[in-house]
Design a protein around this nucleic acid. Sequence first.
DNA 1: AGCGTAAACTTATCAGTGATAAGATTCTTT
DNA 2: AAAGAATCTTATCACTGATAAGTTTACGCT
Lengths: 190, 190
Amino acid sequence: MLHKAKKTYHHGDLRAGLLSSARMLLEEQGISALGLRAITRHAGVSSAAATPHFGNLMGLLSALATVGYEELAVALEPVLEEGAHAAGLVYVRFAILNPGLFTLMFRSDVIDRNEPALAAARARTSGMLTRLIDSLGGQQPQRTQAGTRAALWGKVHGLAVLAIDGFLDVLLSSQGEGLSLEDLLEDALR
Amino acid sequence: MLHKAKKTYHHGDLRAGLLSSARMLLEEQGISALGLRAITRHAGVSSAAATPHFGNLMGLLSALATVGYEELAVALEPVLEEGAHAAGLVYVRFAILNPGLFTLMFRSDVIDRNEPALAAARARTSGMLTRLIDSLGGQQPQRTQAGTRAALWGKVHGLAVLAIDGFLDVLLSSQGEGLSLEDLLEDALR
DNA sequence: AGCGTAAACTTATCAGTGATAAGATTCTTT
DNA sequence: AAAGAATCTTATCACTGATAAGTTTACGCT
C-alpha cells in the first residue's frame, strides 16, 4: 500500500509485502504490535489474506525470524576468518541494529521452531558459530570444548540481550563520559 | 481452591493466592498460559477478582516478576563474599530452576518496569551484582570498569538464557558423554 | 453494640483478537 | 477459450482483557 499505487485484486508478492510490513511494525512498535490485523492493515489487505501464504500468525512470525537468521549468517560470514572477537562484535551489532528481529528470533512462544525453513536457517547460522569457536583450538587449555563454546556464546549472546534491554547504557552512564557503546563492546569482548 | 476448603465470599489473601496460581501456571505451561482468566480460574475466583489487587494483567505479572527479583537477591546474598564464580553459578542455577519466572523478569512487553515495587526490587538485585563485580578490583587490568561489568554480566546472563532455551544441552550432547550440565557451567564460568 | 462506609468479589457486557468457512476475483494450464 | 486452482474478501465464531453495576463482607467510628 505504501509503494504500489495500482490496486489489483492480486497483490503481486503479498508474502514479501507482509513480511516487510511486519518487520517495520516490529522495529517501530515492538513485538506486541505484531497482530495479524495490524500487519495486514499496514500491507493494505484484508485480515484473512495472510492465510494462504503463512497459515496462521505463528507461521508468519516464524518466516520473519527465518529472515533474521539468514541475515545474521550473511553478516557473520565475511568475518569468520578474523576470529571470535570480530564475529562477536558483528553478532552484537546485528542485535543492536535489529533489536525487534533479534528478540523475535529467540521468542519460542511466538514462533514455531519446528518450521522446516526456520530450523534450517537456524542450523546454518549456529553451525557457523560453533565452527568458528572450535577453530580457536587450544586457546582455552583448561576448559572442555563444550565449556569454551558455552562461555563464548554465552558472553556474546548475553551482551546482545543486555544491550537491547538498555542495561549497557546504564553501565555507560555510571562510568565516566568518554566511553561509547562501541568502545564498551570492544572492551567487554576482548 | 487447592488448599482451602472453606468457601467464604472473601478469599483471605487472594493477592498471594493469585500470585501462587500464576507462578504454577507459568512454570508448568509457559508464559503464554498466563491469561487473566486462566489464573483466576486456577485460584477459584471470578475473572474480575484480580482487579482490586493488581489493576490489570500487567500489574499482576509485574508483581510476579518482583517476587522473582526478590528471590534472586535472597539466593545471591549468601555467596556474594565468595566472588564472581560462585555468584554466577547461583545466578544460572536460579534461572534453570525457575525458567518461566526468570524469563518473565526480562519480558518488558508483558511487565511494567516503572511499577515502583518492581523497579525497587530490580535496583536492589542489580546493585548487588554491580557491587560484587566491582569488588573484584584489578583482576581485569586491561579493561575499563564498565567493560569488566559488561563482560561478566553478559556471560552469566547469556549462559542463563541459553540454558533455558536448551542450547547448552545441545552443546553437551555434541560433547562426549561424561559431562553434566553442572560441570559445563562450572567450566564456562571459570 | 451496631451502623455506615469502604473494600472485596461476582455478574454481565463490551470492544478487540486470531481463525475459518464461504463467496468473489484473477491467474494458469491445457 | 474453458476449467481449475490459487489468491483475496466478507462474515462470523469463540475467546481475551477490561470495566461498570450490583452483591456480599469486613471494619472503623460513635
